[in-house]
Nucleic acid binder design. Sequence first.
DNA 1: TTGAAAGCGGTACCAG
DNA 2: CTGGTACCGCTTTCAA
Lengths: 345, 345
Amino acid sequence: MVQIPKTPAPPSPAPSRSVPTSADVARLAGVSRATVSYVLNNTSAVRISEPTRRRVHEAAKELGYVPHAAARSLRAGHSRMVLIPAPTFPVGPLYSRFLTDLQNALAALDYTVVQHGTGGPHGDEAARAWAELRPVAVLVPGSGLGPRGVAVLKRSGARVVVTLGPETIEGAHALLMDHDVVGHSAGAHLYDRGRRRIGVVVPQEPGLETFSAPRLDGVRQSVRGTDATVTELPLAYDEQAAARLAARWRSLGLDAVFTYNDEYAMLLMRALLDEGIRVPEETAVVGADDLMLGRLMRPRLSTVRLELPCGRELAELVDRAVRKPATEPETHKMLGATVLHRESS
Amino acid sequence: MVQIPKTPAPPSPAPSRSVPTSADVARLAGVSRATVSYVLNNTSAVRISEPTRRRVHEAAKELGYVPHAAARSLRAGHSRMVLIPAPTFPVGPLYSRFLTDLQNALAALDYTVVQHGTGGPHGDEAARAWAELRPVAVLVPGSGLGPRGVAVLKRSGARVVVTLGPETIEGAHALLMDHDVVGHSAGAHLYDRGRRRIGVVVPQEPGLETFSAPRLDGVRQSVRGTDATVTELPLAYDEQAAARLAARWRSLGLDAVFTYNDEYAMLLMRALLDEGIRVPEETAVVGADDLMLGRLMRPRLSTVRLELPCGRELAELVDRAVRKPATEPETHKMLGATVLHRESS
DNA sequence: TTGAAAGCGGTACCAG
DNA sequence: CTGGTACCGCTTTCAA
């Protein structure tokens, strides 16, 4: 039976140039849109005859039909999109791997993971832009999202908001990734090795305060109530700055330094060595993040290895929360830290 | 005037828990949905009285109304979403900065940038998942997208497909980011400095072939027709592997090595030095990507600095192509490379 | 200046 | 087993 289009002569001159819809597939297969939907979604509540299924599949393939996610989620009233704001600063291999793991784990649970490039600084206004996409879950690394932002997301249908930062936010699940454990480990390690005048490098680069402040704080905590002192050392990520700091090193009277991460450690350690300061005899140096390259320094760099939650764990937490949103926001302390003692401390 | 809901008693028991729509705003403001749309979009073709505008804005704010992007783009027939597949491997600070720049530039042109976490390896099936989102443009770094994938995207409404890779793909704009210029620069530099037996490190890590193969090829090209030889040196990113390679270094009889990038350079250089091989006297070492840390090595690491296109340029190209899709796919050679000669070569 | 109504592409009821 | 149809939330004519 030949299908006759309902509209006798559609004004569109070149139908080939437009995007195929399920109606086009239905027309070509000689069935209704409903049937197309049933077939392509393998709807179990409905049995479609094998010949029909084949015709639909063939028509879909021939037209290069791809379903329209927006239309689908509009109708469904919800999506399976997990939204993660894209980081605005260069991110280390650690976080990179974590993100890839997480994406794969979520993809395995049939979520669509999307990193949204935010215009302004991650803030409550950014939350509005995210909310427009009606994600089912939002994972926000770092701080910067306030209770208002969380509220906006929740009001627009997000069933889960998870913050991966140093603090708990009202209304959101929190994966407390408080970097203070890093500083704490480093501080304790240095104290145990007899160091008492501890410097802590704080990067000048913007966007890193989120991590550097808690790390500094962790060192402070670790020596609280002892006779050890903690000195904050602002440092920009370039050789001259490091050289300047090294030049006045002896006047600072420090016997140890925790450098925020391995990159700053390598930068500073090189400058110290060039200045004739012996490591670790005169000054112990501890970095963080366990970069491969730290092992190449002489002396080999001691470092604090951060243990991020594995992607699958987090993915399952998200999935659980999506399915049973009644649960109160949970707070988990997710971060572990281990000192890898090598030669520089 | 009190508004009376059209439906006498809607079955929804808790309307407070559902997402506010423009209809809710209209109801609260005592106007029609059309008016709400006009006000919130500042539609210039229609003049709305000031009191009405205020009422609408207040209602929207009170309800915490956020427009539904899917519904909007469904109605409009197009979106302003630019889709970029998320990289699946740890990415350097260089590319990281490039991406951030690009995102900002596109955001300034009022596009929504979204990185899509692909399940499988970037391929033509992944293109289907991207196409479901109906992005107006797709930027694909690396290779892995074939002509079929491009066709799928185009058929589902993408007005621009740009590949940022080593090769041109049928139907897509190509920003030829052929990393061969990196290898070429390094090879030429080494040849100029009298080196004739050149090794090239090729990382064993998966996902890096996209870059390593062209870089190797570039070195080959640079010495074609001369008496110089090029030797491929597979290397995993760990200390033992580097030590093993260094142990048999003298038997290889090489007087120079280009190491893919600075990280591998540092790894290998350390191993060579530990083996007692003098750099650069016996063997010259050149890395790539100009990492800060390379400067800290002794001898300071020579490197090839890659010049990525600036984000704004690319954003404008995309914007132009979106607005005038009639244009033939263009092919641009976007990559420059400069040798930074320091002490290791 | 404002409102009614027709869709955009899919899904899921209910009837046949 | 399949077709008709009423939506999902929003924009945009066309009338009033």
